[in-house]
């Protein structure tokens, strides 16, 4: 069984739990005392990941770190539909890679602001917040135009990808970092749609969605 070196409040660990829940992949969560124990920086943990980061997965001896890399691996290996990582479609795989890089930006701004506020990280909070607002403006406009074309997700096509999944927790927890989403209504609607994906699981601060209206298209 896959082992996930995990911390309940980490957005990057949550991304793995979320994908494995959606893909119905069993896994074992191995809790790492990230805060306040800084266990991921211990010598013992650096034998697993010399960078001292979580998440890390151990899939029957195959070790992989970096949250977005693990998403690529899990989707490529465990999604029989081939939709979450659309490897057979060059255009969609290009878009997925592009928005995954964009998600590195939201992790380094929105989620970094959350670490400042919640876990006493010493980042420049105002710079993180301003950076997140710049990215959210771009993403909100992108999703607004997607909606006008009857599309629900950041990449083309009718199915969400790991790019949506990589962005979702950074966006939906932004208020914990003092970043309001009031100015981004299309982004707020996308978070509702994402939470209705079958297999969705919450984490602290992320709530389950309301049921859809009977007979409505979404």
């Amino acid at each position: 069984m896959i082992k996930l070196y995990d911390y309940v409040l980490s957005v990057n660990c949550y991304k793995q739990r979320l994908l494995m829940s959606i893909l119905d992949v069993p896994y074992e969560s191995i809790p790492v005392d990230f805060y306040p124990g800084w266990e991921h920086k211990s010598e013992a943990f650096k034998k697993i990941n010399p960078l001292g980061h979580i998440p890390v997965i151990d899939d029957d001896g195959y070790i992989l770190w970096d949250a977005h890399a693990i998403l690529v691996y899990l989707a490529a290996k465990y999604d029989p539909s081939g939709q979450w990582y659309p490897a057979g479609d060059p255009e969609r795989i290009g878009e997925t890679a592009s928005w995954m890089l964009f998600a590195e930006g939201t992790t380094n701004t929105a989620s970094a602001a959350r670490l400042c506020v919640n876990l006493e990280y010493d980042f420049d909070l105002e710079a993180c917040q301003a950076g997140a607002h710049r990215l959210f403006r771009v993403l909100d406009e992108h999703l607004w135009f997607r909606e006008r074309q009857g599309l629900d997700w950041v990449c083309s096509g009718a199915h969400p990808t790991i790019a949506d999944l990589a962005l979702f927790p950074d966006v939906v927890l932004s208020e914990e970092g003092g970043i309001s989403r009031m100015d981004y209504p299309a982004l707020r609607r996308w978070t509702d749609r994402f939470r209705r994906i079958p297999g969705f699981v919450p984490m602290p601060g992320i709530f389950p969605p309301a049921a859809v209206k009977a007979g409505s298209p979404d």
């Binding site: 989403r181 009031m182 209504p185 707020r188 609607r189 859809v212 209206k213 409505s216």
Partner: peptide, 27 residues
Amino acid sequence: ASAHDVPYRHVHQAQLLGRELAVWRAD
């Protein structure tokens, strides 16, 4: 809000003259 900001089963967050508003369309 715009009409498309209030689809069914969603709550739109707005603000007017400093006051925050929750705007939602019932079935």
